[in-house]
Structures are given as structure tokens and as C-alpha cells.
Design a protein around this nucleic acid. Sequence first.
DNA 1: AAAACGTGGAC
DNA 2: TGTCCAAGTTT
Length: 303
Amino acid sequence: MTTMPTTDPDTVSPDALHTPVLGWFDQHARDLPWRRPEAGAWGVMVSEFMLQQTPVSRVLPVYEQWLARWPRPADLAADAPGEAVRAWGRLGYPRRALRLHGAAVAITERHGGDVPRDHAQLLSLPGIGEYTAAAVASFAYGQRHAVLDTNVRRVFARAVSGVQYPPNATTAAERRLARALLPDDEARAARWAAASMELGALVCTARNEDCGRCPIAASCAWHLAGKPAHDGPPRRGQTYAGTDRQVRGKLLAVLREAVDPVPQAALDAVWHEPVQRARALDGLVADGLVEPLAGGVYRLPLT
DNA sequence: AAAACGTGGAC
DNA sequence: TGTCCAAGTTT
């Protein structure tokens, strides 16, 4: 007979988590450029786009160049989307660059050039989903939102539910828990969002977690249970080699480096298999990442 | 709801 | 060396 994990918000004591985690954050928060006051809402938003599935260490240099080149949304909006794709470099998932450009255009046209404060308005921008809308509203504007990213989900899974990893897909129970654990005070809630995320990023990591440095190890359900290994369906593994994604990446790398439009032959050289190669290129065009010109040449999108 | 969507560092 | 993982969004 086993007992179910404790996921009922009524059974957890929020303040017993808040105080130590916030205290730890005061001491150990990283000095990241998008956390500095001068970053502004635009800096926060740019960082959130870049950090979607990409590690901080790789984002840092691109972020700095991006903000120097396009210090306000209108600056990016005035430039070609292809320039955003080029400046994105090797961060991966280049559609994010296109969406960030699209968001800048929408902000310029519909919001007077200022990143909106309202969660619903943020959510309506391209490339902004539930997480990013909450993150921008919380980090940039100090609002009270449940900011549920992969780090926070893991912290909650362990500290509250007593399991090593959260479910593959975010559940309603997780959202409910995140809301229940949000401090009542707005400023404290915003601080909590950043702190709980930072704890997951630095201490309560996916592998090699460091419970010895964790401010809530003593009350962590998973730690108390003896840190049982993950039990259940395998966590989704990604394959990459030989996929369309890899071919798309190679094609786009050529276009990013090229100053002038690229002839078909130059693209053909990146992949031997013609059917997959054509499918990948078609996909890039369909996604608006590549613009086909007359005469069988291609370039990053000008419009 | 499941699958597509890049890239590179760490173990 | 191959697997795992990184502040998700979209269809």
C-alpha cells in the first residue's frame, strides 16, 4: 500500500517555502542582463523569447548584440524579418526570431511601441504563450502571475509532490498548485516567480541536483522520501540526426551567412537526399523563414 | 493531443 | 559515443 504524492494545495504551507527560497534568492540570484533595471520590458521580452528551450550561456552574447542593435520594439519592426533571423544566429528554433519580429511589429502598430502590461494582450502576440506572457508581466511589470516553466515545475514536483520529475505535459493540477503557492502580495509574488525558477535552474536541476545547497531540502517531499527515481512513462526523448529539422538547420545556416541571394545549387550541397532536401526547403518557405526569388535563388525574408 | 521545431554542452 | 537537457509555442 502506497500513499499518493501530496499535491493538494491545502496540505502545503506556502510561507514555509517562500521565506527560505526568497532568502536564498537574495544571496544567489545571478546578475543577468535582463534582470537589470535598464533592460526594461523589451529586454525582458527579448530574453524570454531567446530562453525558450535555449540555455542562458548561449543566449547571453546574442541578447547583448540584439538589444544594442534594436533597443526598442520599433527599431526591430523597422528592419527586415530576415535580419532578425540572421541575428538570431545559432540559438536554434529560428521561427522564434520571426515571431519576435512579428511581435515587435504588433507592439509598434497596436501598442504605441511599448510592450503591453496586460497578460491577455501579451498572450495575443506571436510567439508568446502562457508561460512567456506570465513571465513578462511578472518580471518586467512586477505583476502577480503563476510563472510555470520547466524549472518551477521540477521544483514543485519534488518539493511538493515528492517525485523526481513533473509529467511530460503541464497538467491542470500543476497550474492549480502554482496558483495556490503564489504569495498574496504582488511584489512578493513576482519575486517568488523569479526565485523559484532560479532555484530550479541552479540547485534543483534535472540531473545532479544539489540538495546540500537547497534552502528547502528539509521540507522537500522528494528529499524526505529518499529521492526515489522517476517511475512511469519515459520522459520524451528527442531524435535529431537525419530529421527534417537537421536539414532545415543546414539550409538556413547557408542563407544566414550569405550576403547575396543563394543559388539552388548551393543549397543542394548541404544534403544528399533530394526528396528530404526539397521538403525541408519547402517547409522553410512555408514558414516564412526563406524567400524564394525568380530564377531559383533564395534569401532570408525581406518582408 | 501529439508532434514538429535547432543547437550545442555535459556526462 | 550517445543520451539527456535547456526560461516553450504552434498546429
